[in-house]
Write a protein that binds this DNA or RNA. Sequence first.
DNA 1: AGCACGCCGACT
DNA 2: GTCGGCGTGCTC
Length: 807
Amino acid sequence: MPDATCYAQVTVTLPLSGPYTYLVPDHLRPHAAVGSRVLVPFGRRTVTGYITAFAPPSKKMRVKKIIDTLDPCPLFTPGMVPLFQWIADYYIAPMGDVIKTALPGGLNVVDRQVVSLTTSGTRAADDPACPEAEKELIDILGSTPVPLKQLLDSEPPIPRSLIKVLENKGWVTVTRELSTARARAKMETVAEAAAGPLPKKGVTEKRQLLLDFLRVHGPTARADLNRKLPSAKSTLGPMVEMGLIHLSEDRVERSPLGEEIVPDTPPSLTDEQQQVVSTVSAQLTSGYATFLLKGVTGSGKTEVYMRLVEDALAAGKTAVVLVPEIALIAQTDRRFKARFGDRIAVLHSGLSDGERYDQWVKIAEKRVSVVIGARSAIFAPLTDIGLIVVDEEHDGSYKQESGLRYNARDLAAVRARMEGAVVLLGSATPSIQSAWNARTGKFKEVLLTKRVNQKPMPEIEVVDLKKYKDLPGIHTFLTPRLVEAMTQTLDRDEQVLLFLNRRGFSGAPICAHCGEPLKCRHCDVSMTFHKGVNAFRCHICGYFEPAKTHCRICNGHKIKLLGSGTEKVEEAVKDIFPHKNVARMDQDTTARRGSLLKILKGVREKQVDIVVGTQMIAKGHDFPDITLVGVICADTALNLPDFRAGERTFQLLAQVAGRAGRGDKPGRVILQTYVPDHFTIGCAVDHDADAFYTQETSFRRALAYPPFTRIILVRIADKNSGRCRTAAQKLSGLLWERRPDQGIAIMGPAEAPLTRAMNRYRWQILLKGESPSAMKKMITDALAAFRKEGGFSGVSISIDVDPYALG
DNA sequence: AGCACGCCGACT
DNA sequence: GTCGGCGTGCTC
Ligand SMILES: [Zn+2]
Ligand SMILES: [Zn+2]
């Protein structure tokens, strides 16, 4: 019986816009809904797709059938389809890519060609007459089939003809095989005692034991049963056969192991907090609005978020809380878990594919009403969203910097507008963009001006690094003034935190003979020496070079380890304070699961006196006994060729400074810099956010940068440097031809600040204008013309709308 | 993306 | 003459 659900519009997870129309077979109808993940035939392949609508084909055409539906429930809500469409338009991306980016990873099922050995093939290898090349291929295939693509792309490549030859001889076969998705529901077998009388015989003592166990404990998973009652391993089978025990398959949730969390009691709010909660809460039932919460560090923003989430739930709505990835790894979610218990789901990068899938399904099945997570949690499949919180809204990690380069903070407003929800952006140092939106009335501003503990902001002392530049070695950075302040602090039995934006030991290794920097073979950057692994490493591509290396220019063997990273500072600090415990906190010491928690615990329990760390120490940890924060060099980010350099530096300094004096004792900050008179540094020192925003805003206006214009960055990359440049010039020409007389500026093409990464040369073209739609039309048209051009088949072009870093 | 079709250079 | 290189176009 044809009805509305007879035909499904399916978007396949390929870089295609789609959708494609498929027939929904009767037996799949109950499982087919908007958001369902389906397996469909596509060309001569089988691929994964998602139902985005139900509608018959627009014209008479051959329509294929959906092969299967893949999950217990749809993975996104119908309300999210317009969001995906918006993203596809705004970021100039195919719908298939949008959906693939939005949903958890590891879900794609695709078929591929695999080559397998036949029995006669196995025998052929023993034949001495068998040519060497054929023998090699047979060896590679061994006992397990190998994907065709893997053979063709291997080094050295296996010629397609060789495979054809063996296929003709009947030694190998090429077949299509479905790859299994990495993430899927986990099932387990559950045993349950059947009702009814027992037979007179066949029920041995051990079998009776099993039956009793199940009657007492109720249905039990087989794995549990085997553990708690080992004899079940042998007794279960016969009892099932006798019909006395039933087995069934049940879906189980994998949950990441974590410490038990004690429910908390909400503290009472300060007047200011109460004021903010009432203002925002009043909006929860009146449709879309975005609030910008400016709250100094320590003013209790998190408590405000939690109250508002509670209010949203009370109004029968759901809520999403976005936090920076780093904060999540450091367990910011614990406070939310303590408050919301099993009503909350957590999404972050530390989860395995399976765990993330289970959290996702839990959200989709409405078994939770709050989601906390990093960037991608903006795509949580919640219905009836009432509130979206974006904590530390200025944080760069909300911008995805690969593939589809979306900004979750911006999408929060888009999704909220579509679903009639309220957005709360929170930060001590809002982005210039958001601050401006508040100024113009696009956002409503709410304020927390007082710290909860009533403590004043820490005092910041500036140390001019120029004065110490002739001191030996690391003392140019561990200046006498800093060491003195550290000594005083440690003598009071308080803790010190040293912030440095570079990991590793030495970030600028150079040849001692000729002065040539030691660079990566694949990228145009210096290698970083890591003492921990005793080797050089490229931070772009991971390329590894043993410590015993030589200069590529003069073959010299002595490498000078210039430039200071966290490892070098850690070592020097241990040297100066031999009786103090020093912990290092950076990507290298926290890579292993749980290692960060261990360090944090050490700091909390005061087994650690001095922490040396990168960015990640700046977020979310509240250590009352850290009373001195040392910023080793405040200018590192200030000199980057990026219009946001000042903004980022100010935000970072304010945040790092906020780590000092979180407890009862007053905090102090030593800020070292080569440019003590720089405006940005001065504002950070004076805690004068207003001055900084005023000045920075007028700078942006004068130079026509965001928020006064929109920027789109077109990135061109290719293995061949000449072709990359030619492609960039060609594309630039095509853009110029399509440039309207006014309103859009084209800058470039120019080499990217990082000229070469992973053996690909990089160029970029920057577009600046007031109308993003006009710029996008230009780009789409120029891109279409560029693709017709020919000769640029391997060149990759990617478009970054509203780039965060111009790198 | 991946797979087929099709059009040109170099090897039997 | 064929084989196989890759540029072009399509996938419900
Ligand atoms: Zn040299
Ligand atoms: Zn590299």
